[in-house]
Structure formats: C-alpha cells, structure tokens
C-alpha cells in the first residue's frame, strides 16, 4: 500500500515540512559561505585602509554619494516589497505575490541602472585604478587601492543583483503558471533569503565605500 504524499514532496523527505526546512537550511548554508566570500573583501578594505588611511579616504571622497545613498534606500525597499509578497503568498494571494515580484525586479533593475551610470561617471573622471588616475601626489597609492576595492566589490555585488533579479523573475513566472499554492511555496522563501542577503551586502558596503572616507 503506497502512502499518500503531497505532490511537491520528493521521495527522500518524510513530509513537505521536512523538504521545506531542508531547502531553507541549504540556502542559509550557502549564504554562510557567501558571508565568508564577502568577508575577504572587508578584510581587504580594513587592511588597505589601515596602512594608507589618508590615500584611502581621499579615494572614498571621490565616490558619487547620492547614487550610493539612493541605492541603499532602493534595496531596503525592495526587501520590504518581496517580504510582503511572501506574506501574500502565505495567505494564498498569488496575484499580489506576482505584483510584488514585478516591483522588486523593477527596483533591482533601477539599482543596476544607477550603478552603471555611477561607473560611467567614475570612469569618465579617471578613477579606474589602472592607467591615468585623477588623484596624484602622496595619496595616489592609497586612492588607487581604494578604487581597486571599489570596483571589485561593486562588480561582485552587481553580479549578485543580476542573478537575484533573474531569480525573482523566475518566481513571478512560476507563480503565474500556478506552480505555488498556500501549502507549498518553498522557492519563494528561498529566493527571498537570497534577495535580502544581497540587500545586506549593500547595507555593509555603503558606509565603507561612501561614508568612512568623508568628513
């Protein structure tokens, strides 16, 4: 006699909750590895600024503060919107979930467009650390190190954002196709964890890139 299982539950799990808990735990494990990945960047920032504080801060003062600040508020808002979508999903309101996903994607895309614009400004002002560089004199070495950190950190974050926008779009498409219901929406939760983590990374990068060097 075969036991009746939920349609989304795979054979190796005792029940749907076991499967969902495993997926959520797996995502947290991945995010823990991401913490260490971005931790390396923070080490680079701490180490370089410790040895070249004046040059590093001189580099930081050249960043486009208004774009970084606007992007911070955009990403915080996007986490709020996606989390609201998850709450709607829990209540079985798929239409609202899709709408929240679309708004989240729009905010994420706006973030990326602003980031591309900011890179355009940076490059046009000769702030790329290789080649002719805007800052000269004794601060040039530290400033070049800052801008190396800046480009590595922001490009890595933007890559995560692009993946995140794609994942949120995938959730929206799947939800529209009726793949989720109020009894099974684990992918919505897992993608939400990833999206909020990318938000956290920007929350941490914002002061070290835009604020510490000023004042």
């Amino acid at each position: 006699m075969s036991e009746e299982v939920a349609p989304h539950t795979h054979f190796q799990y005792a029940d749907a909750t076991h499967q969902s808990d495993t997926a959520v735990a797996g995502m947290w494990l991945f995010l823990a590895s991401e913490v260490l990945f971005f931790g390396g960047l923070i080490i680079a920032w701490m180490f370089c600024r410790h040895w070249q504080p004046a040059g590093f801060d001189a580099g930081g003062r050249e960043t486009v503060l208004w774009i970084g600040t606007l992007n911070l508020f955009l990403l915080i808002t996007s986490s709020f919107v996606y989390s609201s979508g998850l709450a709607f999903m829990e209540a079985g309101n798929i239409r609202r979930l899709v709408q929240c996903c679309v708004v989240t994607m729009a905010i994420g895309t706006l973030f990326l467009l602003l980031k591309f614009y900011e890179w355009h400004i940076d490059l046009s002002e000769n702030l790329f650390p290789a080649g002719p560089f805007k800052i000269t004199g004794t601060d040039a070495g530290g400033a070049r190190m800052f801008w190396s950190f800046y480009f590595v950190a922001t490009v890595l974050h933007a890559l995560h954002m692009i993946i995140g926008v794609g994942l949120v779009g995938w959730v929206a498409v799947q939800a529209r196709r009726g793949a989720f219901d109020d009894g099974w929406y684990t992918p919505v939760e897992v993608v939400g964890l990833y999206w909020s983590f990318v938000d956290i990374v920007w929350i941490v990068l914002y002061p070290v890139i835009y604020l510490v060097g000023r004042g």
């Binding site: 600024r49 004046a54 801060d57 964890l193 909020s196 941490v204 002061p207 510490v212 004042g215």
Partner: peptide, 29 residues
C-alpha cells in the same frame, strides 16, 4: 557621517550598518 570625525574612528560609521544587517536577517529573512 557629515560632521568631521577623526579618520581613525570613522570605521565606527559601519556600526549602524551592522545593526541594519541584523534587523534584515531577523525581520525579512
């Protein structure tokens, strides 16, 4: 971050970010 603060103590500006990260992890995540 606007008022002048000695360079050595400016990394403390990352403290609010740490609080925000914890809040996002506890709230939205």
């Amino acid at each position: 971050s606007l008022p002048p603060v000695p360079a050595a103590t400016r990394p403390i500006l990352a403290l609010p970010a740490a609080i925000m990260a914890v809040l996002v992890a506890l709230g939205y995540m």
